[in-house]
Design a protein around this nucleic acid. Structure first.
Length: 305
DNA sequence: AAAGGGTGCAACCGCATTACC
DNA sequence: AGGTAATGCGGTTGCACCCTT
């Protein structure tokens, strides 16, 4: 037996929202807030819509201070950098781009940014130092993983004979265009592609290992594109160096929980909404850290550097 | 001008997680 | 502790619009 539907499908409208519906929803929320109950909201607001649909419409379109239109180079850079480190965690990436929604970023990545990156020089992104690590994967199964206190799985880390700690090289500070720079950055950095056999729901079977234990990424400079990127991925047992990194802040907002007061103090000034530990876990748990878009999903784990 | 194909984006779907009882 | 409802998330789909032929 399947899950009960969240609403009476027969009596809810689907498809594009009309301006009238938008107005009703906006008016209701501005007046009453969401009331913490999206399911009940459409009825109260006089809308024949599913609560989920209302929530989505509000978050992705009607919410104040949303940015629409072109992404800036800075935004491109942030998206690329975060995608490289944590994969398609769009909500986390969106939390770093004020006014942008996860849906926006996801669409932007899938329809434009990815293609731009591919178009630059796809072969160069894979060839320089490709290491086939697939044999190392064979004994890694979900059954040997263990749950952390956030109910998500850590994969055991296999012995890894490559660099145990990798530093990103810096971007050149000349007049590279955005994507030339990004490409250069990617080629010279370390990314991991894990096997990722998609299941029907779009998730990945956890038949892969993510060696990344810690991740730090950041920039030095005044925000122009010639700025240096500093960052590193550390593998298990590697220390974290004190660098001027993107600051990662824990927050009790959203789904992130388990943050201590001490952590909050430590990260208090940061603009990010996810804590270091959360990021670490996301990275550790990330089963689809595919950077540079290997659509073929070869089942092999490849390192680029 | 019409048809066909491509693109971008809003919206939906289903699952995982969290909250609540 | 277990069950259920609500919420959040990421992948996918559908369609309107634009461009090319």
């Amino acid at each position: 037996m399947g899950r009960a539907p969240c609403c009476d499908k027969a009596n809810v409208k689907k498809g594009p929202w009309s301006p009238e519906e938008d107005e009703k929803l906006r008016e209701y929320i501005e007046k009453n807030g969401t009331g913490g109950n999206w399911i009940a909201l459409p009825q109260k607001a006089g809308l024949k819509r599913c609560g989920k649909s209302c929530r989505l419409r509000w978050l992705n379109y009607l919410r104040p201070n949303l940015k629409h239109g072109e992404f800036s180079e800075d935004e491109d850079r942030i998206i690329c950098t975060l995608y490289a480190s944590i994969g398609s965690r769009w909500s986390i990436i969106a939390s770093q781009l004020p006014g942008r929604t996860d849906n926006d970023i996801k669409n932007y990545w899938n329809t434009k940014l990815k293609k731009k990156m591919m178009g630059m020089n796809p072969s160069a992104l894979k060839k320089p130092h490709q290491v086939n690590l697939s044999p190392m994967l064979q004994n890694s199964t979900p059954s040997s993983s263990f749950k952390n206190n956030h109910n998500s799985y850590f994969q055991p880390h296999l012995p890894f004979t490559g660099s145990e700690s990798i530093s990103y090289s810096s971007l050149p500070s000349d007049n590279y265009s955005t994507f030339e720079s990004l490409q250069n950055y990617q080629v010279s950095s370390v990314f991991m592609e894990t096997s990722c056999s998609s299941s029907s729901d779009g998730s990945c079977n956890n038949n892969q290992i993510n060696h990344v234990k810690e991740a730090e990424l950041g920039y030095v400079g005044d925000g122009t594109f010639g700025d240096q990127i500093i960052g590193r991925l550390s593998y298990l047992n590697s220390g974290v160096e004190d660098q001027d990194t993107l600051k990662l802040v824990p927050s009790n907002a959203g789904r992130v929980s388990g943050v201590t007061d001490e952590e909050t103090r430590l990260w208090g000034e940061s603009p990010l909404e996810y804590g270091l530990e959360e990021i670490k876990q996301l990275i550790s748990n990330s089963s689809c850290n595919n950077f540079m878009l290997d659509d073929s999903k070869t089942g092999e784990m490849v390192m680029y550097y």
